[in-house]
């Protein structure tokens, strides 16, 4: 008996099947629709205002571009892998993974790859052109951006891993990644600074969208503070360590799929 709940994960895995070139083609179509959607959204908002909580039109395009890069990387490796992992818990095939002589966390995190998602990341080039900031600054700024982006990715990855580890207790969890995608897709395309404090806290520490998107984008728009940089690297370390511990604790709960 399907309903959106059941379909979404199956759909997601179906999406990964099929001939790779066709997937790329669809990836391009999806990325194009996504790009058009976001540019239109920004246009509509900036028809009404010149600044959204201190962010200019160009800044926002940079932010959306960063978001595209991050979703591309997440969608290419972590999302499909974590989905496969959740499915393998449900089907009991996680046993096979555990018997391999490789760190199970690593294997679970990178076990499947959706190459078409590179289109999302690669396509973000458009955003740079549109934002008019391309070529504005290179060198240290870009290096800082890349480092912050990596730190942000570590945090999002840790968050996904913790979510996925819940599957050791609650077997039916296939949809949690879709929910993550909805949250990340909606909240991540806007600067964290416009949200009211309570929501900002959630989007910063619970679902680390702020660190994955807003702060790296600030590196490019020049709104970065030293405190934020330090906080980002420190938290990335904390998140990674904590998620590692949580994973090892959770894996002890694994009983195999008895059903």
């Amino acid at each position: 008996m399907p309903s959106p709940l059941k379909i979404a994960p199956t759909f997601a895995s179906a999406y990964r099947t099929g001939p790779i070139p066709r997937r790329f083609f669809l990836g391009v179509v999806n990325a194009a629709v996504q790009f058009a959607t976001q540019m239109l959204a920004i246009t509509i908002v900036f028809n009404q205002t010149e600044s959204l909580g201190g962010w200019s039109r160009e800044d926002l395009i940079v932010l959306v571009g960063v978001h595209a890069i991050v979703s591309g990387i997440l969608g290419m490796i972590f999302s499909p892998s974590i989905s496969s992992f959740l499915e393998s818990i449900r089907l009991g095939t996680f046993d096979f993974l555990l018997t391999k002589p490789v760190d199970a966390q690593l294997l679970a995190s990178v076990q499947s790859v959706a190459p078409q998602s590179t289109v999302d990341g690669g396509g973000s080039g458009h955003y740079w052109l549109w934002s008019g900031t391309a070529g504005a600054g290179f060198g240290l700024v870009v290096l800082m951006f890349i480092l912050l982006l990596l730190a942000g990715l570590c945090m999002v990855y840790s968050f996904m891993l913790v979510l996925a580890s819940m599957a050791f207790w609650f077997v039916k969890l296939d949809n949690i990644m879709n929910i993550f995608n909805v949250m990340f897709g909606n909240a991540g395309t806007w600067p964290i600074t416009i949200f009211p404090a309570w929501l900002r806290g959630m989007l910063t520490f619970i679902i680390p969208i702020a660190f994955a998107v807003t702060i790296p984008a600030q590196a490019l728009t020049g709104a970065l503070t030293v405190g934020n940089v330090a906080l980002t690297f420190a938290l990335a370390a904390v998140f990674l360590t904590a998620s590692r511990f949580f994973w090892r604790f959770a894996i002890r709960q694994y009983t195999g799929a008895s059903a």
Binding site: S3, P4, L5, K6, V45, Q48, T49, L52, G53, F170, K172, N175, I176, N178, I179, V182, M183, N186, A187, W190, I194, F195, P196, L199
Partner: peptide, 28 residues
């Protein structure tokens, strides 16, 4: 039977309007 999943799904449908309220209130 899958109310937990329904709840998650609902959480997803809350997200978009929630974000947009923030955006448009900021604009206004």
């Amino acid at each position: 039977a899958y109310r937990g999943m329904v709840a998650l799904w609902v959480l997803g449908s809350v997200m978009q309007p929630l974000v947009l309220i923030v955006v448009w209130q900021t604009v206004s």
